[in-house]
Design a protein around this nucleic acid. Structure first.
Lengths: 185, 185
DNA sequence: CAGGGAACGCTCAGGGCTAAGATTTCCACA
DNA sequence: TGTGGAAATCTTAGCCCTGAGCGTTCCCTG
């Protein structure tokens, strides 16, 4: 009943896998070793990364937009569609993010005169200052989160995560094509 | 039909790093190689993993609770606090998750007769059936997402993610201790 | 054996995201 | 040149999460 937590705190995912092997031994739980760990480390990362941002009154969602604009270089402007693709979120999500940032005076919306469907979001002066100050803190914070890893491990992990992203994206696209095929039957 | 992502489209995170080197060359962006990739692959994973669950009318949040209870073994029961820690979420979040699952008839709340502060959440018969059926699909889906990786790469990645979780957790705990020290001044 | 602190779960206010569909604008082509 | 489809953005409805704080219950201590 009580959870075992020996002095050197066993990996939580290893316990999960043990549990499943006991409860449903016929299942091959190998994928959990990757994805359950991915999930847990992301949740921890997310909550840790939010701390310096909250100090500046900026959310992770807002930070994502501000960095995308800052990265773009002068005049620090992108369309809503570009922001959706770069942040891997829906177009509705972009609208909401931009609403909030515009209300805070960090960005301005500008309708494209050539193609009036398009809206450009541009960093305000205040937005540039905020993100330039915050990004240093952000990197410093991330460095502290990597303190337990060697540089070689970081490089190896980065490489494998890149490969995993491609693998997950491939499965996603395979699903979408299958959906299109069966849609016309 | 041509692929949507032609060969010349390089890794999105590599482009980010290039952008930062151009815009703010004084910054050491090495941590992004790990965390930006972690963030992106998690977002893709999250949206892909939701597909089979939606078919059963279950959210990722609900799935997390149901698996935690199923893993626990008979009588498939845990306290709210245990669920919060195992899912890395707040106690308020647990209350909401349980509210929804109870309304759907997948779990039942039972107040502990020995310690009346404690509430146990237990899988209903229907809950057990649902999660047993869904978990197979879930693992199959995860396996498809790993199709682009070799087993050796998966093991290596799992190991490094485990190490990263410990490293991130250490940074988190360091922050909390610092907060406690300065709180009493 | 009475207080008071600690532990547990819940409530509330404030954000955040998505899917589906509406609206506006562009553009290719008959 | 008129029209239908496609594209870009916004709106709506619904669900999910957190931090702060509340009420209840337990239990240690004096």
């Amino acid at each position: 009943m009580a959870q075992r937590k020996p002095a050197h705190e066993q990996d939580a995912v290893a316990s999960f896998v043990e549990d499943w092997n006991r409860e449903r031994p016929e299942l091959d739980t190998a994928p959990l070793e990757v994805f359950a760990r991915l999930h847990r480390v992301f949740l921890r990362y997310q909550s840790q990364i939010s701390k310096p941002m909250e100090g500046h009154g900026i959310s992770m969602a807002g930070f994502d937009v501000l960095t995308a604009l800052r990265r773009a270089g002068a005049p620090y402007s992108r369309t809503a569609g570009e922001l959706a693709r770069s942040g891997l979120i829906s177009s509705a999500g972009v609208t909401l993010r931009i609403d909030r940032l515009e209300k805070d005076g960090l960005i301005v919306r500008e309708r494209d005169p050539e193609d009036r469907r398009v809206v450009h979001s541009r960093l305000s002066e205040q937005g540039i200052e905020q993100i330039d100050a915050l990004f240093n803190e952000h990197l410093e914070n991330e460095r502290r989160m990597l303190a337990g890893m060697t540089p070689a491990e970081c490089r190896q992990l980065a490489k494998l995560l890149g490969k995993l992203e491609r693998s997950v994206a491939a499965a996603q696209e395979a699903d979408e094509e299958e959906g299109e095929e069966t849609a016309g039957e």
